[in-house]
């Protein structure tokens, strides 16, 4: 059902018969999102504390109710609205079900009520260990609710050098192969020219030239494929 590629993204088969890609978000970016949310919650609670501070005993009571709502309700509210808390939005993350579908309210409530187990004994220690032990970086709450946190991907655009010529390849390539040619062209500038030629010369089957013109030929093919954006 789920297969994982080299780039850590999962191809997920939908009931509609196609598969879409999801990239699970790791520990560090989720920690950042958590800290951002934590900061936001603290600021909100400070503001409420300031307002309710003028209201005596009743103010303290209302403050405690607000504190309860903010600590337990913050994640449930935002994640049930769009799958994203402000912190997750900032770091382009989203909570989805295991199969990539948007979460239902019961998943959201469940994954957030299991937080005490994840944060046991302090600083989300159990959660971090559990996350490190699986490929989808699920904490206990994610396991219970059947959810995971994935990257919201930007619109893909491929930009190889625009000044190079375009030439079609000798044979038809699969999408994966096309993609690797484009990625080669994109990161060529990080390689020495000798290394570029060395890599390009592996592809003597699909390019007509060899030796020091091979790299140029591969880039032309990459340009051909990336030019066909739409």
């Amino acid at each position: 059902m789920i297969t994982q590629g080299l780039n850590n993204s999962f191809a997920n088969t939908l009931p509609e018969g196609v598969s879409i890609n999801l990239t699970p978000a790791g520990i560090s970016i989720r920690t950042k999102a958590y800290l951002f949310d934590f900061l936001l919650r603290s600021v909100v609670m400070l503001a409420f504390g300031f307002i309710f501070g003028f209201m005596g005993k009743a103010g303290t009571g209302l403050f405690l109710v607000t504190y309860f709502l903010v600590t337990w309700g913050y994640y449930i509210l935002f994640e049930s609205l769009s799958g994203q808390t402000p912190g997750k939005k900032r770091y382009k993350l989203k909570v989805v079900q295991d199969n990539g579908l948007p979460c239902k309210i019961n998943h959201i409530v469940l994954r957030n009520l299991i937080r005490p187990a994840d944060s046991f004994p302090f600083a989300y220690l159990i959660g971090l260990i559990v996350m490190a032990l699986n490929y989808q970086f699920k904490r206990l709450g994610d396991w219970a609710a059947g959810t995971m946190v994935v990257y919201v991907e930007d619109k893909v655009s491929f930009s190889t050098q625009q000044n190079s010529n375009i030439s079609p390849p000798k044979i038809q390539l699969s999408t994966e192969e096309q993609l690797s040619l484009i990625m080669y062209a994109e990161r060529c500038h990080t390689l020495s020219s000798a290394r570029q030629e060395e890599l390009a010369n592996i592809l003597t089957d699909i390019i007509t030239t060899q030796d020091n013109t091979a790299s140029e030929a591969v880039k032309e093919i990459a340009q051909y494929y990336s030019g066909q954006a739409t």
Partner: peptide, 12 residues
């Protein structure tokens, strides 16, 4: 085996 960009767009 259409181009990766097209596949990515349709995926989105």
């Amino acid at each position: 085996h259409y181009s990766p960009a097209l596949v990515a767009n349709l995926n989105d």
